[in-house]
Amino acid sequence: MEDKITKEYTYITLRQQPQIKDKVAEWFHCKWGVPKEVYLECMEDYLNNETEYGWYLCLDGDKIVGGLGVIENDFHDRKDLTPNVCAVFTEQEYRCRGIAGHLLNMVVGDLKSKDITPIYLLTDHTDFYERYGWEFLCMVQGNDEADMSRMYIHK
């Protein structure tokens, strides 16, 4: 039996497998509750080269087990802090295997190669993103959120 901890996963951008965009949009929708159409619109812009704000995935065979995206603004009041990594998610049974960290490093490298820096990330987590070179920047007000959330920056 293959050791799942050391198993090789496939990391891709959506541009590498555009035919799975509906599946990807549905996956993100199920994780975050944002309408599938919103994801599809952002993905279409990326696939049509209208933006470099892309979608990054970890696959186990043909199963999506982790992913994240990059959008202009992740539903907060600081419109000047852009672009934003969004929708970071790893399936429960795949956590603690470095998948999210690999995806974060992948997006940072990809955007830096396109001279898109700095990038931002909105989260309520502490002590996770710092492991991957992210620094706490400030608190921001999320749209329709009672409490402030943490904004991180990667330079």
Rank of each mutant, 00 (worst) to 15 (best):
E130Q: 14
E93V: 12
R131C: 12
M139R: 12
G98F: 06
A25C: 09
V65H: 01
D80M: 09
I64D: 03
G61R: 01
N49L: 11
M139W: 11
K4G: 00
Y56V: 01
Q16F: 00
I12D: 02
G69Q: 05
I64V: 10
L137Y: 11
C42R: 15
K114T: 07
Q141W: 01
D80P: 07
K21W: 14
T123K: 07
G61A: 01
T82A: 11
P35M: 06
D147Y: 04
G54D: 01
R15L: 09
H125D: 12
K31G: 04
C30L: 14
Y46A: 04
I99N: 04
Q141S: 13
A100F: 08
L57S: 02
D80T: 09
D124E: 15
P83N: 08
L111V: 09
V34E: 15
G98I: 04
E50P: 00
E145P: 00
C30E: 14
M1W: 04
Q16W: 02
D45V: 01
I99P: 04
F128L: 12
G66T: 03
F75K: 09
M106H: 15
I20Q: 11
P35N: 13
C138Q: 14
V108W: 02
D22Y: 15
L111T: 10
C96Q: 15
R97V: 00
L111C: 10
Y39K: 08
H102A: 12
A25I: 10
D80H: 09
K36L: 11
E72F: 12
L40N: 11
Q19M: 09
N84V: 04
R150N: 12
Q92W: 06
R78I: 01
V38K: 14
Q92H: 12
E72W: 06
H154M: 03
P35H: 09
Y53N: 09
C42P: 00
G69C: 03
R78G: 10
E135L: 09
G66L: 05
L47T: 02
T90K: 07
K31D: 07
T51R: 02
R15W: 01
